[in-house]
């Protein structure tokens, strides 16, 4: 095993190890830069900022604290969960309840309010724009 510890082989081993790690790391940094170059976009055009803008009017109408119930857009159930999280963030520090069992309610319909869904169940108190409605349960 002496050859394994000889100065030449030691240098070779270390150089190989360095080339492996340096090469992999620099390649990764390059790939990272390349991947993120397509992310550049104008400030304020991200989905959270856009959602906050949608709820700007609602924030003025609703009380600052307390509880509000939320009516999600059942027509897009896959996106409904994300919409609820975004609405909850936009309306904080108001506690947003994901069950339509209290008044007032916030209806969140990014694609427009579906009349068939609202009919009979909720009365529209105010259209806050951008698919956001202030609702009240019917018969209450």
């Amino acid at each position: 095993m002496d050859w394994f510890h000889s100065a030449f082989l030691a240098r070779l081993r270390i150089t190989s190890a360095m080339i492996l790690l340096l090469g992999a790391s620099l390649f990764s940094s390059y790939a990272l830069l390349k991947r993120t170059s397509s992310l550049s976009q104008p400030t304020g055009s991200d989905e959270v900022t856009a959602y906050e803008a949608r709820f700007a009017h609602a924030r003025q109408v609703l009380p600052k604290y307390g509880k509000v119930c939320y009516v999600p857009d059942y027509t897009s159930s896959d996106a409904a969960k994300k919409d609820f999280f975004l609405a909850r963030y936009a309306l904080a520090p108001l506690v947003v309840r994901n069950f339509p069992d209290c008044d007032p309610l916030i209806g969140d319909f990014p694609g427009g309010a579906p009349a068939y869904f609202l009919r009979g169940r909720y009365a529209v108190l105010q259209d806050l724009g951008h698919g956001v409605l202030l609702l009240k349960r019917n018969g209450r």
Binding site: L33, T36, L39, S40, T43, D46, F85, Y89
Partner: peptide
């Protein structure tokens, strides 16, 4: 490269990702 990537990610999502604003 890390600093540039960090700033690009942050510019694209200034409020962070799902668990950050969630």
């Amino acid at each position: 490269a890390a600093a540039v990537a960090f700033s690009r990610y942050s510019a694209a999502a200034p409020h962070g990702s799902w668990d950050a604003w969630g």
